[in-house]
Design a protein around this nucleic acid. Structure first.
Length: 421
RNA sequence: GUGGCUAUAGUGUAGUGGUUAGCACAACAGACUGUGGCUCUGUUUGUACGGGUUCGAAUCCCGUUAGCCACCCCA
């Protein structure tokens, strides 16, 4: 038997109902904030992610599903959403019609990590990208939307962490300062092996090392805010002011560093409880250099991505989930071939009138058909047998009141409609 | 990607080398035959896969696969 690929899973109808509900609610919220859905391909040229996410990031170095197609093109399944959206924004010259634009997306992303609860190789994100503005209100709005989506889904225990990485120059300065601080033998020896490597490749990542010893040592050497330029400092203050205006509680955490290279200035992360080590449920930030780096105009932008699979997990853990079935309006139970034929065409009429209805497909006994109707939570059951065919009328049973009435074949659709009203 | 733990009907589980692998729920069928839920009766379905040890393996060993936990990373 062929099984689903490692790290992928089926979202079965029971669960799918919950997904749809959350997606629908999210679309509604995003709509009120003026965001429009964009759908980009699941596959892109590998170079897109190498350039944007960063050559030295784990995502690109070891987590991408990449392959060479028959035309010898290097292609990858998208590991995240931002790069493709910026690509689409530039490729379709969207900025020429209007510079500032707000997008949202919902869909699967792919990363070849070792699977765990809350960490799949195909996982699903809902995210937004607001492109074309440096305004600090935008950062606050983006964060606000993330919070709104979480609350709409019913998530209770979450925490928002906020930081400012500074502009590209600030990041360089920070890297330089870190490198210098740990350039001498004795200080280097205090770091874990990973951090020794990070020191060379990507010093900023030393900031969020989980090793207690590293935390202490690195902490002792600097505080992020001190290395911010005046503009970045001001921007951060403004973002905080707007957040306060919206009464959004946050925790300033100078050790938040994102694993994607394009972030500048504001970065944030929302963690949820009950998810074990995979507790980052949503995260994002500003990326003011990405658009120009990709050959576009110099424009600021900000966005986030929310992990839907993780949110579902967190919701089940909170026991806030409920899966209500969409009960059937009508079930038609039949006895005999003639009755089935009559019922089958009747079904079509009812469905044309947007009445949800169904019939038996397994030649079951009347008793079993009634059981099936009950299981489907049918409100009404129409019973047609030989007697009814002779009289040209059917028995309509209300499943709740057990009340039964005879209805002429010609008046069935109207009668059912009236009963359902 | 590294280390560890786990794998028994659809689901949750019992079974620590010895008969036909047990239980609950679910599913299906039926209870004077044309009517659901409750009750009762019956039925179907399983040792992840592949090797090995042994007279004998769900049980011990090895490999594979998958899941889980931690790391790593991230949503």
């Amino acid at each position: 038997m062929i099984k689903a690929i490692r790290g992928t899973k089926d979202i079965l109808p029971d669960e799918s109902r919950r997904w749809q509900k959350i997606e629908d609610e999210s679309r509604g919220i995003l709509n009120t904030f003026g965001y429009n859905e964009i759908r980009t391909p699941l596959i892109e040229e590998t170079g897109l992610f190498v350039k944007t996410v960063g050559e030295d990031t784990d995502i690109v170095k070891k987590e991408m599903f990449s392959f060479v197609d028959r035309g010898q093109r290097d292609i990858s399944l998208r590991p995240e959403g931002t790069a493709a959206i910026v690509r689409a924004y530039l490729e379709n010259n969207l900025y020429k019609a209007q510079t500032f634009q707000k997008f949202f997306y919902i869909g699967p992303m792919f990363r070849a990590e070792r699977p765990q609860a809350g960490r799949l190789r195909q996982f699903h994100q809902i995210g937004i990208e607001a492109i074309g503005s440096n305004h600090p209100a935008l950062d606050a709005e983006v964060i606000n939307i993330l919070i709104k989506l979480l609350e709409a889904a019913g998530l209770k225990n979450y925490q928002l962490k906020l930081n400012n990485l500074g502009c590209r120059e600030d990041r360089k300065l920070l890297s330089k300062i870190l490198k210098e601080a740990f350039s001498k033998r004795p200080t280097v020896r205090l770091l874990c092996d990973d951090c020794k490597r990070r020191l060379k490749a990507n010093p900023l990542r030393m900031l969020d090392c989980k090793n207690e010893n590293c935390k202490r040592v690195v902490k002792g050497h600097f505080k992020t805010a001190e290395y911010l330029c005046k503009d970045c400092k001001e921007h951060f203050d403004e973002v905080i002011r707007f957040l306060n205006l919206l009464k959004i509680p946050y925790l300033a955490d100078p050790y938040i560093v994102r694993g994607l290279d394009y972030y500048t200035r504001t970065v944030f992360e929302v963690t949820a409880q009950n998810l074990g080590a995979q507790n980052a449920i949503g995260a994002g930030g500003r990326y003011d250099n990405l658009i120009s780096d990709m050959g576009g105009p110099k424009l600021g932008a900000c966005g986030f991505a929310l992990g839907l699979d993780r949110m579902m997990l967190a919701l089940t853990a909170n026991e806030n989930s409920m899966s209500e079935k969409n009960g059937l309006a009508l079930f038609i139970a039949t006895i005999g071939k003639t009755a089935y034929d009559k019922a089958f065409s009747l079904l079509n009429e009812l469905r044309n009138d947007k009445i949800s209805c169904d019939i038996d497909y397994e030649n079951k006994s009347l008793k079993s058909q009634m059981r099936a109707a009950d299981k489907m939570e049918a409100r009404l059951v129409l019973i047609i047998g030989d007697d009814e065919i002779k009289r040209q009328e059917a028995v309509l049973r209300d499943m709740k009141t057990k009340e039964q009435t005879n209805v002429k074949f010609t008046g069935i659709v109207d009668m059912v409609k009236a009963k359902l009203e």
